[in-house]
């Protein structure tokens, strides 16, 4: 299964405090372990939200909102995409991560949707039926 491992933002990351050399080294080593275990698919760190934008949708309207955004705990500072056997494996690898931030911080693991997630409940017949319903809906 594929999971996204989200590094939650903190006050420091939002203030643009750059990671120390020690942390960069530790993270480099950790990333190497992830690669050698064959689970690392992708990963990036993100600039603070002050450099970000939001697009708000409401009916036909689109409003662009400039960062920074207030609710720090809900923001993200980086992510990985991992390919793991199950959630337990993802949790175990996440625990081995060096503290991603100087103070208290959090990683969040979220499974990525895959065709197999629909499993046996999503039989070929159901898929076909859904396709037909969609076509009908499109014609209306």
């Amino acid at each position: 299964m594929r999971v996204m491992v989200i590094v939650k933002a903190t006050k420091d990351s939002e203030e643009g405090v750059m990671p120390t050399t020690e942390l960069l080294e530790a993270m480099g080593k950790y990333n190497e372990e992830l690669v050698n275990a064959g689970i690392m698919m992708a990963g990036e760190g993100l600039h603070p939200s002050v450099k970000g934008k939001r697009i708000a949708f409401d009916g036909p309207s689109r409003t662009v909102i400039d960062g920074p955004f207030a609710e720090t705990r809900e923001l993200i500072a980086g992510f990985w995409l991992w390919e793991v056997k199950d959630m337990a494996e993802a949790v175990e690898w996440a625990k081995r991560c060096p503290n991603p931030m100087p103070g208290p911080s959090e990683l969040e693991i979220r499974p990525v949707f895959e065709a197999a997630d629909f499993g046996e409940a999503f039989t070929p017949e159901l898929a076909e039926q859904e396709e037909r319903l969609r076509e009908k809906a499109a014609k209306r």
Binding site: N36, A37, G38, E83
Partner: peptide, 14 residues
């Protein structure tokens, strides 16, 4: 398939 890909990725790292 996923198992083989993982083996391939591990081997590529090693």
């Amino acid at each position: 398939c996923a198992e083989a890909q993982r083996l391939g990725r591990i081997l590529a790292g090693l």
